[in-house]
Each structure stands twice: as C-alpha cells, then as structure tokens.
Amino acid sequence: MTETSAPTPSAGPAHASAPAPAPADVRRVACVGAGVIGGGWVAHFLARGYDVTAWDPAADAEPRLRRLVDAAWPALGQLGLAPGASASRLTVAATLEEAVAGAQFVQESAPEKLELKRELLGKLDAATPAGVVIASSTSGYPMTDMQTEADTPGRLVVGHPFNPPYLIPLVEVVGGERTDPAAVRWASAFYEAAGKSVITMDREVPGFIANRLQEALWREALHMVANGEATVRDIDLSITEGPGLRWAVMGPMLTFALAGGEGGMAHMLDHFGPSLKSPWTRLDAPELDRALYDAVVAGCDDAADGRTIADLVAERDRDVISVLRATGRLPGAGSGAGEGADAE
C-alpha cells in the first residue's frame, strides 16, 4: 500500500483541524458505542498503545466498559502489549462531541439499526475534526446506505471486525459510493498499523466477505437441526475436530486445492466438480419457528455442559491464542513465550 493520505478536508464538520496524521502516527482514537463490539475495539486499541476516548449513551456504559476491558486484559497480555499500553489510557466522555474532539480516527459501533447509523454518522461527521476518517463496525449495511446524512461522506468507511475485535485479527474495509478512495486506503493502512489483518474490498457486498461465508454455514446448520439430521453438539464437533483445524492454517480455497494433490485446484475441480450438482446444501434460510429456536437454544445449553458464558469466553480466548501461537502468528511463537501463563 503506497498511498495513505487522508481524504481532502471540505466544508461541513464543525471543527477545523490540521490534516489527519499518517496512519502509523495516530495516537488518539475515539470509540463511539461501547457494547460488546465497541468495547472490544476499545480493549484492542488500548492494548496497541493508543489513548482512547469512548462514548456510549447508556447510563451504565462506563462501568460496563471498564469491566469488559479488565476481562480482556489477561488475553491481551498473552497476545503481547505494545510499549506504553495501559487500561488507564481510557477516558469515557460525557458527550459524543467531547469524545471525538481530539480524535485522529473514529470507530463507530452502534447497534445495527439503519436509521440510527445514518443519524449517528451524520452527527459524527459534524463533530469530528476535518480530515479524520470515521469507520463503522456495521456487520451488514453498505456504507452507501449509511452515509446519507453526512455533509462530508467522503471520509466514511466500513471497518467490519470479527467478535471479539481484541482477539480476532480480521477487519474488512470498504467504502460507499460517496467515499473518497483515499479514505479507504488510509483506513486500511491504519488498521494494519494497529495490528489487524485487513481485507480491503474493491466493491460493496451485503454482509461483506466473511459474514457471507459464515452465514452459509449457519443456515445449513439450522436446516440440519430443524430436520433432525444433526444435533448442535454434532455440528460444532464436525467443525472443531474437522475443517476448522485446517481453516486455522489456510482458508477453504487453498484447503480444497490441496485435495487435488499435485494437480492442485484444477485437479480438484475436475475430480469433485460434478458433486456440486449433488443436493448437499440448502442455501435458502429455514423458517426460524419456535421449534427450531428452542432446539438450537437447548442444544447450546447442552453443549455448554454447565459452563457459564464467562467460562466459555475464557476458554475461547485461551484456545484461539493457542492456535495463533501454534501457527506462528504471534511474536515469539515456538520460542516458549507465554508457556507459564498457559500452564496455569
């Protein structure tokens, strides 16, 4: 990535400002919305050494956010904290305007309601210093549909993370029809500097890339439960003990290419291509009626086997870190770093 200049400031935002810094020079981030996703972003940015100012309209937002950061901090310590990283560098602002006043990047993580997103992004655009990129954590809405109330929509991009943002590296970046391409390039470079693994999308796709793939698997799983073909436990085990282990190393495309042996993907398609006509999948969503709803919920309770959500979160965090370390994606992987913490 060679061009990382921020979008050219134009009339609209209430605050005048010098041009945004280079992506690697950002020091202060604003996080607007402090729920599970927004709080995860706060934890990630704090662990990467940024000063973070957060705002959320909920009355209990600050204690809830600080509990989330405290709960995430042990995992972040195992991932490796940046020099100077500290939870004490979090400030919770009283107003949206206060939160973004000195921001060099803004991450919006409000609930998935289109009208709310439109209104909030319009307010953020009006309050954020000129030239500063504003990213939305939306999990499905195209930025074209969300940037309608902004006076300077050119700086609005999607920065879609995977939950929890402090643990899962992926972020998908894409602009809308009125987004300045320079803002997309700048956001991608910033996320990379902030330690994320970035997919920069060339065009808008509803649900983006990873969610589209995840949704296909989710729908097939619901069909199997609805038809009594598999239990929740069966489905989860089929992934964690099967393709999920391969997917942690390489994605489904390269995994299938290996199925072709020395002939690679071409041989795989020649050999297995006809099976695509087999009625193995049902991509139409099943009716989420009460019976299916109850079966999925009860199945998850059974699979949890007495473990609380907190227990499962801790177990997930530990195990994902182990996979990341085992596959060489953490500093010091293979050198024994963190073994003492894992043994506890």
Rank of each mutant, 00 (worst) to 15 (best):
E344T: 11
P63V: 03
D202S: 05
A135D: 00
A127R: 12
Q104W: 09
E229R: 07
S86Q: 02
F272R: 00
V323R: 08
A30N: 04
K277E: 09
A14H: 05
E262F: 07
P243Y: 06
T2H: 15
P252T: 09
W247I: 00
L245M: 13
I134N: 03
H15S: 07
P161V: 15
L76F: 01
K196V: 01
T200K: 12
I239Q: 11
A150Q: 03
R203L: 01
E192N: 00
V158L: 14
A82Y: 04
A54F: 02
D51S: 09
L116Q: 01
R290I: 06
L213S: 02
D180K: 04
A59T: 14
P181Y: 12
G251T: 02
M146I: 14
D70K: 10
S139Y: 13
E192C: 03
A194S: 13
A16W: 01
L79H: 09
P7G: 14
I239Y: 07
I134M: 15
T200Q: 06
M253H: 13
G159S: 15
L245A: 05
A285W: 15
A94S: 02
V133D: 13
M1D: 08
T200N: 08
I134W: 05
D180P: 01
L276Y: 11
D311V: 06
L120S: 06
F208Q: 04
A298P: 05
E177P: 05
P169I: 03
P243R: 00
D284A: 15
L114D: 06
G33W: 10
D125A: 15
P83Q: 02
W55G: 12
A135S: 10
R290G: 13
L68H: 08
V32G: 04
E97N: 14
A193C: 09
P181N: 12
M268A: 14
L254Y: 11
A20D: 09
G261D: 06
A216K: 10
T179K: 09
T255E: 05
L167V: 10
G77F: 02
R155F: 15
P169Q: 00
A126C: 03
A130G: 02
E149K: 15
R246W: 07
D317R: 09
K117L: 13
S86I: 01
F45Q: 10
G12M: 14
L276C: 08
E339I: 00
A221Y: 02
P243M: 02
G334R: 05
I235M: 09
A58I: 05
Y50P: 00
V205E: 12
A20Q: 03
V313F: 07
G80K: 03
P169M: 01
A285S: 14
D302I: 08
A187Y: 14
S17R: 13
Y293S: 14
G195H: 04
D305Y: 04
I235A: 11
T281Y: 13
C300H: 07
S109L: 03
V133L: 14
E241R: 08
I309G: 08
V297M: 11
D25R: 08
S188G: 13
N211P: 05
A30M: 05
P243Q: 03
T327N: 06
P83K: 06
T2S: 13
W186K: 12
A110V: 14
A187M: 02
D145N: 12
I235R: 02
D294R: 06
G77N: 01
A101T: 11
T179H: 13
L312A: 10
K113C: 10
D60S: 08
A54D: 12
E241I: 02
T4G: 08
A333W: 12
A150G: 01
T4F: 07
